[in-house]
Nucleic acid binder design. Sequence first.
DNA 1: TCCATAGTTAAGCATGTGCCTAACCAACGG
DNA 2: CCGTTGGTTAGGCACATGCTTAACTATGGA
Lengths: 105, 105
Amino acid sequence: MDQVFKALSDGTRREMIERLTRGPASVGELAQPLSMSLPAVMQHLQVLEACGLVRSEKAGRVRTCHLEPDGLRLAEDWLGGQRTGWEHRLDRLGDFLNFDEGKRS
Amino acid sequence: MDQVFKALSDGTRREMIERLTRGPASVGELAQPLSMSLPAVMQHLQVLEACGLVRSEKAGRVRTCHLEPDGLRLAEDWLGGQRTGWEHRLDRLGDFLNFDEGKRS
DNA sequence: TCCATAGTTAAGCATGTGCCTAACCAACGG
DNA sequence: CCGTTGGTTAGGCACATGCTTAACTATGGA
């Protein structure tokens, strides 16, 4: 969980993810629009793989990377959980305010 | 965006958010379950406020913090956008494979 | 076989992050 | 007033992060 959000907290890595939503890509293809050395891209890729957001296989001398959408869903679920939990609380806010009023009067 | 995910990438800050989904809290209340000095909690709080996930007002000598759920929704929307974009691509995957087969034969 | 391509490893550096302690300020409460 | 409570500021330390360059490996083609 920590790792997923930490991975997403970097703009470069989010760009890589966006690229991968449009289909698989080699390491070089990922690096091309990034104005950054290849080793740097590799490191980002390792971060993305380590937390399960991306998978990659090497065939010959080219490594092909693709998205692992369950990883994204993990983060999305946490956020949704918090938000709906909060909304739930809002639903009870009326009751709470009534109780407060009751105490005061 | 960067800042939101960076804020969420820390377990302590996520705990603080979870706490705040259950209602507003003072700085001390936020710090209580966290086995960490008060200044440290303050810094986390500043991070959460800087990226719009939390708001706080000071009344007398106690600062009361509450969630700003639009911030969470921002992150959630990005994730959802990526995921649905990917699913969209999957919808077209059949066509792509057919095209590939066509090329090969 | 030899060179170019695609990727990988290693080492190092600058900056950022998370935490601490110590000192400080500001509102109550008596 | 004066101490206590709740918060804030300042400074510093240890470690993590993002990037670099240089050197290396391994595959594929002429």
